[in-house]
Amino acid sequence: MQIQLSDVSFIYEKKKKKKASALAPAVLKQLNVTIHSGEMLAIAGKSGSGKSTFLQLLKGFLAPTTGSVLLDGVDPNTSKRPELFDQVGFIFQYPEHQLFSTTVFDDIAFGLQSAKLPREVVEQKVRKAMESVELDYEVFKDRSPFELSGGEKRRVAIAGVVVLEPKLLILDEPTAGLDLPSRTALFELLHQLNEKQGLTIIWVSHQLDEIVNHASRLLALKNGIFIADGSPEATLSDPVLLDAFGWEEPSALVVSRLLEQLGISSGNGKLSPEEAAAVISTALNQQQILAK
């Protein structure tokens, strides 16, 4: 799905409030951005920078004060078609906190209830959603979501959104609170949804390594303005931007740049330690041969 924001501003009417809380909307200023179908877009910014407001505009939880949000060319707000926002899946931080049913199946099927589908169709859809988050249907469908591990609970919660077959998936810090193996597994899953099902994915992240490794594009938001928009490699090696956020350049970018500067070819500009070691040892061997 293509999303287009033109001249979007959002102003919170009550001026009294001094600081926006986590969910209270902050101010956005004249945003112009197009998000293309199939992107893996990371959004970064401190709390209060307007991230949450921006995401809520895409889902229709908030309407822009001025400007328009177009989903595939249509503005659901002005055309009075709020159901268009149903194509957007929104996964909040710690989505497992929203689980409520006695079985995994019921929890995932919650969103299908209002469509009044025949039982077989519901079953088939839930099965597919569970497969796409790599939960075995037969093993998990009758279990209580509350007795699952943290990583599994999160998958159930994600399945509850994926089952509605959204075209755009928004995730607010999807890996918060997970340990490394669960984090890695979650991103494998997101890449699969992105590649196999063609889902556009937008996620908020504080982890620069995560952004470098998984995003195709990075939007950095500060005080309601996008101060950077581009490839993670380019933006996260820009000293001005890094300074504005108080970030440190990811090591993968530093090492790759060094190798490039020294004329030792580097592949994609973000070498993993193993890749970098391979490049370096090859280079050293060649130099040794030349020296002899």
């Binding site: 990811p250 090591s251 993968a252 330690p273 970098a276 070691a277």
Partner: peptide, 14 residues
């Protein structure tokens, strides 16, 4: 990162 890189290099005999 740098610790992993050092290990990977050591493994390659550097």
């Amino acid at each position: 990162y740098y610790h992993a890189l050092a290990l990977a290099l050591q493994a390659k005999g550097v």
